[in-house]
């Protein structure tokens, strides 16, 4: 999904991290291109290529973070969920359903979900 991220208009850079093991992709975002002002916005993506891939797209900025994940968790029924918190508050969770199936579809889907979430802040 690093290619899909690099093609997205709000992503300014995307790299495998750490550079040795490359267990996640770390992207720097420019949400001001969506008309949302914040500094130091990043997106971290992990992807486990299991039969049913498990993944997490997690956005962070100063005092707010949120993510769209599909992985076993004790918070909602099923694996797919959205989570967010303000500052160091407890996370709030809700079950969701993804439309996309492949990594590029999910990347564009999550980025659109992020745009809408930031638009509502």
């Amino acid at each position: 999904m690093i290619d899909a991220l690099r093609r997205h208009p709000v992503v300014t850079a995307a790299r495998g991290q750490p550079p040795s093991t490359f267990t996640e992709v770390s992207a720097t975002l420019a949400p001001h291109r969506w008309g949302y002002d914040t500094a130091d916005a990043t997106l971290r993506v992990t992807w486990q290529p299991l039969d049913q891939p498990e993944f997490a797209f997690h956005y962070s900025e100063d005092s707010f973070d949120c993510g769209w994940h599909r992985e076993p968790n004790p918070h909602v029924d099923g694996d797919a969920h959205y989570q967010e918190r303000v500052g160091t508050d407890e996370y709030r969770y809700e079950p969701i359903r993804f439309d996309g199936e492949t990594a590029p579809e999910l990347t564009w889907e999550v980025m659109e979900r992020l745009r809408k979430r930031l638009d509502g802040r």
Partner: peptide, 23 residues
């Protein structure tokens, strides 16, 4: 969510060739 939103954004920023290649 409304599927057409992210699909439209994807189609706007990646050509058919790019989408086929990435998939």
């Amino acid at each position: 969510m409304d599927e057409s939103d992210w699909e439209a954004t994807w189609q706007e920023h990646a050509s058919a060739f790019d989408r086929v290649r990435s998939v």
